[in-house]
Structure formats: C-alpha cells, structure tokens
Design a protein around this nucleic acid. Structure first.
Lengths: 109, 109
DNA sequence: ATAATCTATCGTATTATTGCAATGAACAAA
DNA sequence: TTTGTTCATTGCAATAATACGATAGATTAT
C-alpha cells in the first residue's frame, strides 16, 4: 500500500528509522556536515553550498527541522539554522547503542 | 524530478546516505536487530517475527543485501541471512565519525 | 512608499518506496 | 514422480520523496 506500518513496530524502532531518514539523503548529509563545521549558523549560505534550488534546500531543511535534528531561528531577513544539540546527542546515543550491540556468531561467514 | 542528484555529492555523502537508508525503515531496523541478537542466522524466522507478509520481508532483505549490510547464504531449502561484519564495521565507523564531529558554537541556541 | 533580499510555500512532474497476493524456482522427502 | 517447503520475483496499487519554477510573506534599506 506504499505506507509504512509504523504502528506495528516499537517506538524505538520508529525513532531509529526517523533519525536515519534524516541522514538518508546526501543533500541532508551535506547540510548537517556544513552546520557542524561552520561556526556561524548559516542560513541561505546552504543554497550556495548545495547544488540544488532554493526551494529544494528549504524542503530538506523543513524535514530536518521536523525530525528535530536542526532548528531555525528567524533573524530577519535571514533564518539561522543550527544543529539541535539535544536531538543530535540522542541520535549519537541511539546509533551508538545499535552499533555497539555485539554481533552474534554467524553461521554463514 | 523526483530523482536524487547523487552525482553532485561526494562519494562519502552518498555512502552515508545509503547506509542510513538501510536503517530508515522500522522493518529493516527490526531485521538488523534480530540478526544481531539471534545466534543462528535465521531465515524465514524473520517472517514470523515481523508483522509483514513474506514478500515484503523478502524485499527488505533484498535492499539490505544490496547495500551490503547483510548477506545470505543458500542452504536449501532455506536461506541463511546474517550481518556482514565488514560493512557493519564500516557503518559503525562512518556514523561514529559523523557523530564525533564537534558541534561548533551555534548562534541560535 | 518602493525596492530589494531572503525564506517558505504552492503547484506540478517524476521517480522511489511500501505492501501484498500470486506465481515461480529450487530443492528435499515421500 | 509427486508433494511440500522455502524463498524470490512479478504485477499491481497506493503513498512518499525528490526537485524546481513561480509566487507569497516578512523585513530591511532607500
């Protein structure tokens, strides 16, 4: 049906999936990397950095904002985006947990 | 146009996005968690564990296999799936790097 | 008030993803 | 050979995601 059956999975599984979705597009990876690197909270500079139209960049920013991984502060006429430390740490912890899970002995290695 | 412009991003950014995509659906998260946990490399047991049809599970497995994060060994009449340690470590490292990037002082916190 | 700047949103087109029933392929057991 | 088991693939339908031009909204500068 093309719609993910989120209700049959755990909250944690859905959260992992949502946080992963934030990173599941190279443009959003580039946005996050740039926000991590640049000392000031660039805004429309992202449009310059990314080879995408302004509308497309704005849409990716909206998704990241919705997931919570970034937030923007209106500072007219610009909007100042930056990493949301809280959610960033949440993502770090959640992925850290996952990757630290010991891989059980496999039968087909 | 609905198609990701992969060619304008770096290989690393695309790789991060691909690996994240593997985790960007709760069913695939559940599959990976189960493969990490279960000592034997379950195959169709995944269909029992997941509240999805066999065809759907097979499709998610195919995606995970394509990204490289799991691999399957035919062991008739079953197929034995397990985590691909190499790629798993690659993912661990790539996400570890990303999350260890120091967050620069933000202007809008 | 007018113009310029920056960002968000709308509308639209295209492709990708999710899901499942049905079918097919491969093999083991009878 | 026939049957049953297991998994992959196909075909279809519906929703999500990607991308961009055009436009609207908000604010500053002139």
């Amino acid at each position: 049906m093309g719609v993910t059956k989120t209700q049959v999975f755990t909250d944690r599984q859905n959260r992992i999936a949502d946080l992963a979705k934030a990173l599941a597009h190279p443009a959003r990876v580039a946005i996050i990397q740039h926000l991590l690197k640049v000392n000031s909270c660039v805004c429309g500079d992202l449009v310059e950095v990314l080879p995408l139209a302004q509308a497309t960049v704005s849409q990716h920013l909206k998704e990241l904002k919705q997931i919570g991984i970034i937030h923007g502060e209106i500072n007219p006429p610009r909007v100042c985006y930056c990493i949301n430390e809280t959610v960033w740490q949440e993502a770090k912890a959640i992925f850290g947990d996952l990757f630290e899970t010991p891989v059980s002995a496999a039968c087909c290695n």
